[in-house]
Every structure is written in structure tokens, then in C-alpha cells.
Design a protein around this nucleic acid. Structure first.
Lengths: 132, 132
DNA sequence: TAACTGTACTAGTAATCATAGTACAATTCA
DNA sequence: TGAATTGTACTATGATTACTAGTACAGTTA
């Protein structure tokens, strides 16, 4: 379920956050589904529980999961945070990356196609009012 | 010209890379234009010359600038690298970010609009074959 | 030659990361 | 109730990386 590269320069906990976020966004993990406990997952991945906890804490602060002491950690509802601060941040990063993509020669059409594909993969849970 | 936040967790050299990349992509800095020397810029920003050098080295490895010993550092031609490896990387990051954006409720239309705006800002140097 | 340019190298400090160990509170279930 | 599980909070330690500082060298220019 998780492919970790302990030799990567990218911290393990970040890899975990990315991977879990991906599973949540693509709805492989669905709302209120229970995640493995920090100890269980740590044992499975043969890494320290503290590392798992750090990843879970990060995901919780970003609104992707919620944790209840004594019960466990669970996937949040879709579009959990609706945090405008977070949306602004994503929009900002997106601007930079799109600029770079266009600069490198990736065409607009390619970008449109990419968006379509991703939307299809997510499952179209978010309806749009009109196609361009 | 450069607004640096030395108190940010983001390294200074990364801030420099981002800012310079932005200026190059938006053609505020044009091809073959000379950049300030590592020492001059270091003095202006009251930071260590090595930090500037690190940023310049990074930009050079990404194909945005080129440096000549004894002469200086200069902006590269547009679409410099055409490095397919780099394009793949950007495409990958873009996928992740677009997924997150859609998940957070940013609509397709908004994304299309964003692409249009960015293209306009860049100056439309890269022509596209057709609008969607 | 003198003053500039980029570049390379070492060294020291600071920050981050992963781990280990312990402890505590809340929940679950036999 | 009691045992096992859950999340959470600490401290401490070793390893690695990031950043800064200083010095030196090579090429270019006037």
C-alpha cells in the first residue's frame, strides 16, 4: 500500500503525507474510513511510530483526516477544510508551476487534457457548470 | 528587485531561485541580459556570496541562466533546456497539485481562466494550435 | 597590472530528521 | 472492572543536511 524510499532526501513522513493525500483525493480511502494505528503502521513499515504520528498530525492540520484519542484516525469528509488560506496557497503554487510548464513548452491543450483526465480520475464528484 | 525573508523556513537561495525564475519566465529579464555578480548582489542583499552562487548554480543546472568565468552570469534563451526529464517532473508535480486544487473545490473553469491569464502574462511567445 | 568575474574548497554552526524510550488519557471489549 | 488498544506528549540522541563564513584560485576586462 505504501512504497517508501528511506534513502530518498525527501523525509519519510513527507512521503507518507503525499501518499495518503493521494489516496484520499482519489477516494481509494473514503470518508470516515479508519486508518491503521500509528503503532500498527509503524510495525508494518518498520519505521518509528513517531514518524507516523508526525505524518498524521500534518494530515490532520491540513484537514484530510481527524483523530480521536483512544479510537483512531479517520479520513475526513471530502473538501474538508474549505480553508481559504489553503486554497490561496494552492492557487499560488499552481500559478508558478503553470508558468513554468508553459515556459517549458507544455501546450495549453495539454494542460486542458490533463485537467480533464484528473477530474475523471477523481470521479467527477465536483460538478462544473460549463465546459470551455 | 528582490524581497527576501531571512526569517522564513524557506532557504534564501530557494527564494532567490524562485524569484529569478519568475523574472525570467515573465521576460522581465531577457535573453543574454547580465545578472548582478555574486558579490554585488550579496552586498546589496547583505547575505553571503556563497548563497548567491548556490542560487545561480541551481538556475544554471535548470537551464535558466549560463555563467562564464571572469565575465558574469547571463539569462539563457527562452525554452532553454527542453529537457524531457524536467518536463516530466513538472507534469508530475502539476498532476498532484491539480488534483488537490480540484479536491479543494477550485473549479475547472477557474483553472482554465488561470491558464489563460498566465499565458497572457508570459506574452504568448508560445503559440498554441487551437483553443478548447 | 589591477579590478572585476565565477568557482572550488574547507570548516563551523544551526536546523531537521528519524529513532528510542517513557508516560498519560480516552476508548473498546472481554 | 481490567486489560488491551488508541492517540498524544515529552525528552534525548545520533545522523544528516542546510546554511554561513572565509579563503583561495582561474579567467576576463580595461
Amino acid at each position: 500500500m505504501f512504497e517508501l524510499d528511506v534513502r530518498s532526501r525527501k523525509p519519510i513522513y513527507e512521503q507518507l503525507v503525499e501518499r495518503l493525500k493521494e489516496l484520499i483525493i482519489t477516494e481509494v480511502l473514503t470518508a470516515d474510513e479508519q486508518l491503521p494505528s500509528v503503532r500498527t503502521l509503524a510495525q508494518q513499515l518498520t519505521i518509528n511510530p513517531n514518524t507516523i504520528q508526525k505524518a498524521y498530525r500534518e494530515l490532520e492540520s491540513q484537514g484530510y483526516i481527524y483523530s480521536i484519542k483512544g479510537k483512531g484516525s479517520f479520513v475526513s469528509e471530502a473538501t474538508p477544510s474549505r480553508n481559504s488560506e489553503k486554497i490561496d496557497k494552492v492557487r499560488n503554487e499552481l500559478s508558478k508551476l503553470l508558468s513554468e510548464a508553459l515556459y517549458l513548452g507544455i501546450t495549453k491543450n495539454e494542460l486542458y487534457k490533463l485537467i480533464q483526465e484528473i477530474e475523471a480520475a477523481i470521479g467527477g464528484g465536483i460538478e462544473d457548470d460549463q465546459n470551455p
